[in-house]
């Protein structure tokens, strides 16, 4: 690895000031499972690496039934799926956190890092979009919010301006009779990059028979993860049946504009979008109903 300096500030203000001070030369280190590989392979360079894991706000994992979930940008995956409240309230998030790399990766890798790395195939991002998460960002001019759906701008590029730091992700409090799911297709059992990934969230009505609203998001089928707006809008008011999920899958296919590469052809990916949309909607309904029975 090319030499760099290391520092581990304990406040957001110090981290932001270090980022500005080393304009363009600084790289943020959370779990390191992407950035250390990129630095070693010369894909990125750093004069200084800023370890943000000592900043309390970036290690947050506050799950509250009324105010929602605040997830620090550097909180590792294993801590997230190890939290029973998060697994119950935001299962799409924990579905994704449980399958990013193996256990060794999950002990370190953060959802904030997965988002900032902005891979089109990132497992957590469709789940974040489906769950309507908002990124809280701190910079030289104060703090601002960016909906996760707008955070990735191109492969490996994100909406952070120079000197800005992702602090945390904020998730709305779970509404009654709502749930979510994330699934991906890979040709192996574990430890692979998604050929396609789909995250779905939905809320059922009082009777549990009708979908009140839904959000479907797709990964690995465009330069950035995408919100499947047409399918999501159409689902509102539809009965919670297999036929509905299948039709939503057909509509979600229209939001996909994949390329063909070593992982799959464009045609295959579009097909997978339909299948995984159908399956994640069915899973989310199943979970919403089960939660209702338990609650």
């Amino acid at each position: 690895m090319k030499p760099f300096d290391y520092t581990a500030p304990s406040t957001i203000a110090d981290a932001v000031s270090l980022l500005s001070q080393h304009n363009g030369e600084a790289r943020v280190l959370a779990g390191g499972t992407d950035i250390l590989v990129q630095l070693r392979e010369g894909l990125r360079e750093a004069g200084i690496v800023i370890d943000v894991k000592k900043i309390a706000e970036l290690r947050a994992l506050d799950c509250c039934s009324t105010s929602g979930l605040t997830l620090g940008a550097s909180t590792p995956c294993a801590e997230i799926y190890g939290n029973a409240d998060v697994c119950t309230a935001y299962p799409a998030l924990t579905d994704a956190a449980r399958i990013i790399g193996g256990w060794q990766i999950q002990s370190r890798a953060s959802i904030g890092g997965n988002l900032c790395n902005a891979s089109p195939a990132a497992d957590s991002i469709p789940a974040l979009i489906a769950l309507n998460a908002v990124a809280l960002v701190a910079g030289p001019n104060g703090q601002r919010e960016i909906p996760v759906a707008d955070f990735c701008t191109a492969p490996g590029r994100n909406a952070l301006a120079a000197g800005e730091l992702l602090v945390c992700l904020q998730f709305p409090a779970p509404s009654a009779k709502s749930s979510s799911a994330y699934q991906r297709f890979i040709p192996r059992n574990e430890m692979d990059i998604a050929v396609v990934g789909v995250g779905s969230w939905l809320q059922l009505d009082e009777s549990g028979q009708t979908i009140l609203s839904a959000r479907v998001a797709l990964g690995a089928v465009a330069p950035t993860p995408v919100f499947a707006a047409e399918a999501s809008d159409w689902l509102a008011g539809k009965p919670a049946t297999e036929d509905t999920y299948r039709q939503a899958g057909e509509l979600a296919r229209k939001s996909a504009s994949p390329i063909s590469d070593m992982r799959g052809t464009a045609e295959y990916r579009v097909h997978l979008v339909g299948v995984l949309t159908q399956r994640t909607l069915a899973k989310a309904v199943q979970r919403a109903v089960a939660q209702r029975a338990a609650g």
């Binding site: 280190l29 060794q104 430890m191």
Partner: peptide, 21 residues
């Protein structure tokens, strides 16, 4: 970070020591 041959426990959690500074 792919092979796990460098696995160690860091505060009890398994990590790839090649991906820890």
């Amino acid at each position: 970070g792919n092979c796990g041959a460098c696995s160690v426990l860091l505060d009890g959690a398994p990590v790839n020591s090649c991906l820890v500074l």
